[in-house]
């Protein structure tokens, strides 16, 4: 017991002050929200499209748009763009409530809205989630799990992962939804009492990611059950997930 107390003293209190205090610092090569400079790109140049592994880029005329729901943030497009109009900022705020808001162009509102009036009213002070991995590679799962550690301490916001869908207000889904998990996913969703919300974490859950065209994961999550929040990334940084959850339930004011 003395030993345990001694270690407790040495380890100290390690919970970050975010969101009241400063946001956690992102590492040097972190690829966050894409920034597309408004300069127009070369007429016939399609190099970014050709190199993108998840077909996240579209070019209409000379306007480049990146679908962050598909993007895996590999930054290959930045490498090949001869005009250097694509970049990735250190901003980790990527979540959006509407799928179409994940498509970013140069003129867009910097941070898409993730809030939901219903979620704020019903779950603003207590949100219990059931997690379903449906073909996830365990990276999204791991960085969701990390929010439960004392560094992030998700519990202080009243958000908690529970062991039964019957106890849950919402479903947090990772992975491209393999055909083999479709039934289990539907059953879990149906077992949740109404009203309920669904959160898609990672490129795979948002769009199928690099598995989008696979017959083994033939349907996208949003085609199976309605999704209330999309959190892009491959995997999203824990800060990205936390930011999305907090904005969804109104614990962070989006106007700030």
């Amino acid at each position: 017991m003395i030993e345990i107390l001694k270690v407790r003293l040495k380890q100290g209190c390690r919970t970050m002050s975010y969101p009241a205090g400063p946001a956690p610092e992102m590492p040097p090569h972190f690829t966050g929200r894409p920034v597309i400079h408004p300069e127009s790109c070369g007429e016939d140049c399609r190099e970014c499209i050709e190199v993108c592994p998840s077909d996240a880029i579209s070019v209409t005329g000379s306007e480049v748009r990146i679908d962050t729901g598909r993007c895996i943030f590999c930054a290959k497009c930045r490498q090949v763009c001869p005009e250097q109009i694509i970049d990735f900022s250190p901003d980790f705020r990527l979540a959006a409530a509407r799928r179409e808001d994940l498509v970013l162009g140069s003129g867009d509102d910097p941070v898409p809205s993730a809030s939901s009036a219903v979620a704020k009213k019903l779950f603003g002070r207590s949100l219990k989630l059931r997690q379903v991995s449906a073909g996830g590679c365990n990276a999204c799962e791991a960085d969701t799990n990390v929010l439960n550690t004392l560094a992030w301490d998700l519990g202080r916001f009243g958000i908690q992962f529970v062991a039964s869908p019957r106890h849950a207000d919402g479903l947090l889904v990772t992975g491209p939804v393999t055909n083999h998990m479709e039934l289990a996913l539907k059953k879990t969703y149906e077992a949740l009492p109404d009203p309920k919300i669904v959160i898609a974490v990672g490129a795979c859950a948002a769009s199928g990611g690099i598995f989008r065209t696979h017959p083994e994961s033939s349907k996208v999550l949003a085609d199976i059950i309605p999704v209330d929040l999309f959190i892009p990334g491959c995997p999203p940084h824990p800060a990205t997930i936390l930011d999305g959850l907090l904005r969804l339930v109104g614990r962070i004011d989006e106007k700030e």
């Binding site: 050709e50 190199v51 993108c52 592994p53 998840s54 895996i72 590999c74 290959k76 991995s133 073909g135 996830g136 590679c137 365990n138 990276a139 999204c140 799962e141 791991a142 992975g175 491209p176 393999t178 083999h180 998990m181 289990a184 690099i210 598995f211 696979h214 017959p215 083994e216 994961s217 491959c234 995997p235």
Partner: peptide, 28 residues
């Protein structure tokens, strides 16, 4: 339950997705 058809998708490669399949075979 997690079967995503990766080995089948790798045949005929490598292509622009190959390295990313490897990154996500087991994300950890």
């Amino acid at each position: 339950y997690q079967h995503r058809g990766i080995e089948k998708a790798l045949a005929g490669g490598p292509d622009k997705r190959t390295l990313h399949y490897m990154e996500t075979l087991a994300g950890d």
